[in-house]
Amino acid sequence: MSARAEVAVSVGAHGDSLWSKALRKFRRDRVGMWSLAVVLAYAVVALGVVLGLWAGDWADVSGPKWAPVSGEYWFGTNIIGQDIFARSLYSTRTAFEVGLVVALGATALGAVLGSTAGFFSGSWIDEVIIWLMGVLDSVPFILLVAAISYTLQGSPWAMHIAMIATFWIGTARLIRGEVIKLKSLEYVEAAHAIGVSRFMIIFRHILPNTFHILLVQATLSFVAAIKSEVILSFLGLGVKDGMSWGLMISESTFEVLAGFFNNFIAASVLMFGLVMAFNMFSDALQDALDPRTVK
């Protein structure tokens, strides 16, 4: 036994669960706690937009073209005189909408297909799911978005659906592997022996034990969705009605060449802040949930 493992054994000798230990470890992680606080602050901004507390006037042409930063226009105005501050806040809402829809959709789909493949590993069901993952992995992402967008005739949900259709694959691969490991464990075999249905075994006995993987995967999908939104919106394949950081940056490419940076800076900095905080939160979560880390 290596020295590292030996230490791990003696530290892990307490009989408490993965979750309470993870919570304790996460609370002590200062970077993790701060990044969570930043993410929550963004969430409050987004919620305020949903409740109509602010940024309701994001589309109004209220001021002169390219007004500088002032008490009235905190971040200035854009090329046609819209308030950049209001547009930034509204875009935060869009980011959370895209992030949450994609994270939930991709994680749920990955969990269901991954656990099904793992549970029936070696059978044709598994083969079909693996084949599907390989196929979707081989289609260039932007082309898939475009193709889905054609099929849905320009529906604003085409982007969400395309992201879900690709982001579930990583989660499904991890869950499949974990389920193959779990299904040989005693309690699952016991459930088999007393005649619990396959459906119940997967969803009541196996999936709950992969929840820590799903949680981390959901945070990763959230970040990936926000980042993809910016590029897709810039290419005209993303957000169709409404405002987003991607659309703001797209707008700003003309302004930047004319030497006006407010739109670009506002969208970039706000987006960077959220993505960075979410990345660090996700890291801290992985550390806290990893049973191997003893550090």
Binding site: A3, E6, V7, S10, V11, K25, R28, V294, K295
Partner: peptide, 11 residues
């Protein structure tokens, strides 16, 4: 000794 995040452990 080993540095752990729960304190120093004397192996």
């Amino acid at each position: 000794e080993f540095e752990t995040d729960q304190g120093v452990l004397r192996a």
